[in-house]
Design a protein around this nucleic acid. Structure first.
Length: 445
RNA sequence: GGAGAGGUGGCUGAGUGGUCGAAAGCGCCGGUUUUGAAAACCGGUGAGGGGGUAACCCCUCCGUGAGUUCGAAUCUCACCCUCUCCGCCA
């Protein structure tokens, strides 16, 4: 959510910003009118309320005196009937005001965040800018297989049986596959907690409507979420651990010295994404459920862009230690997520696709989420509360990391070599074989 | 799942229709005193919104939402949450 002042005053700036985000600039006109109407109604209703409060006190005094003086009692009755009129007016105005505020919040909750000045203009991923590249894509003396062929041959992935259980876009991991995914998660959590200063959290994976609204998934993207249960108890499955983590401090004012706070959490992520059918229909790339390790930061506004750079480095470190080639992309204004002011994507090299594919997305949301979720802090003990800046990033998506390992480290027979940093997690596990200093998942010959 | 109790300011806790944004205590901040600290004493100490150049003024908020009333922390209804006991379970 944006500051209400934005669409009350300098709407030209906002209109420009919204065009950069592919949003409808006509919204601004409407918001402007609603904001004016709100202000007007507040002024009228508050004048009447002040009048009523004053009269209530006077009536109380009159009632106290009325016992000894009957004429005062008549006066009190007269004032009460007078105030009845005022009360009706207040009620009518308050009803109107509530409607205007409902509309105002309905509309303003649907406006995306404004891009930071360093974000390039553009309407699609074509306008994203490559910032840097790490590692070199491996050369193969054979045609590299994709992770589906590799995974099924090794017996570690099964999409057909998964669809029997849950339908399309779900996966079963077996044996060494399940162990590898789990090892990746543990490796990532260990790295972030031991070397990057994040505190590990296990959050709820089901959250309420307020929580989803706080981070920006609602009200606009309800169709992308899975929802549980019947109407009386509405809960949503988290599409990312960003949601519960960021909302940890909702409706709180953090004491001076508390910031920065770094959290990391593993969670399964559940995404309905009704609009995405037709893309990546096969394999692990796009699933209704996937595993991810998330990074979230709460920081002072002045530091949030430095913190974003640091967070990207934290995510990159995972890929570097796994020896997976990747590049860092700065997203253009039209390709960013709803709440982001600036986003870097990490894209890992997938040999079978001969393409870089997103494996992490790190964003500075500035005060967009903080404003919605009311996440504030005090700089000094006596200071005014300020909105914190929130950041989130994948560190990393485990499923896609799994794909990258299969595809990048395959040999001609479809065996998979395991990166060194994972050996300590997988040494001796069923399905893994030693070859000298190397560790492999071997295809049955 | 069954039965009961309760949600008030940073914390403890009073308040059951009328100057109650809320007693008291603790905590915190400032001051007096002190060589310094503690103690003691004095004063201050929530958030959001509206108006004003400003000093400052006004409105709202006692779990959330609706209702009754001239007037609600206080009465009514619904919901959420917490605690205790029983049952069940990892």
């Amino acid at each position: 959510m944006l500051d209400a002042r934005f669409f009350q005053e300098d709407s030209a700036e906002l209109e420009k910003a919204l065009q950069r985000r592919n949003a409808d600039p006509a919204l601004i006109q409407r918001l402007n009118e609603l904001a004016k109407s709100r202000k007007h109604l507040i002024q009228r209703t508050e004048t009447l309320k002040a009048q009523r409060n004053k009269a209530s006190q006077e009536i109380a005094q009159l009632k106290a005196k009325a016992k000894s003086n009957p004429s005062v009692a008549t006066e009190a009755e007269r004032r009460i009937s007078e105030m009845k009129e005022v009360g009706d007016q207040i009620k009518a105005l308050d009803t109107e005001l509530a409607q205007v505020e409902d509309q105002l919040s309905y509309e303003s909750y649907r406006i995306p965040n404004i891009p930071h000045s360093s974000v390039p203009d553009g309407i699609s991923s074509a306008a994203n800018v490559e910032v840097r590249k790490w590692g070199s894509s491996p050369t193969f003396e054979f045609e590299p297989k994709d992770h589906i062929a590799l995974g099924e041959r090794l017996g570690v992935l099964d999409f057909e049986r998964a669809s029997k259980l849950s339908g399309a876009r779900f996966a079963l991991y077996f044996g060494a596959g399940a162990a590898l995914e789990r090892a990746l998660i543990q490796f990532m959590l260990d790295l972030h907690t031991r070397e990057h200063g994040y505190q590990e959290v296990i959050p709820p994976f089901l959250v309420n409507r307020d929580t989803m609204t706080g981070t920006g998934q609602l009200p606009k993207f309800e169709q992308d979420l899975f929802k549980t249960g019947v109407e009386e108890r509405e809960l949503f499955l988290v599409p990312t651990a960003e949601v519960p983590l960021t909302n940890i401090f909702s409706n709180e004012i953090l004491e001076p010295g508390r910031l920065p706070v770094y959290f990391t959490a593993y969670s399964p992520c559940f995404r309905s994404e009704a609009g995405s059918y037709g893309k990546d229909t096969r394999g692990l790339i796009r699933q209704h459920q996937f595993q991810k390790v998330e990074l979230v930061k709460f920081v002072e506004p002045e530091k949030s862009y430095d913190e974003l750079e640091a967070m990207v480095k934290n995510a990159e470190r995972v890929l570097q230690l796994l020896e997976l080639p990747y590049r860092v992309m700065l997203l253009c204004s039209g390709d960013m997520g709803f709440g982001a002011a600036k986003t870097y994507d990490l894209e890992v090299w997938l040999p079978a696709q001969r393409a870089y594919r997103e494996i992490s997305s790190c964003s500075n949301c500035e005060d967009f989420q903080a404003r919605r979720a009311k996440i504030r802090f005090r700089q000094e003990a006596q200071g005014k509360p300020r909105f914190a800046h929130t950041l989130n990033g994948s560190g990393l998506a485990a499923g896609r990391t799994f794909i990258a390992i299969l595809e990048n480290f395959q040999d001609k027979e479809g065996n998979i070599q395991i990166p060194k940093v994972l050996h300590r997690y997988l040494e001796g596990a069923p399905g893994f074989s030693r070859r000298g200093a190397e560790l492999w998942i071997l295809a049955k010959s």
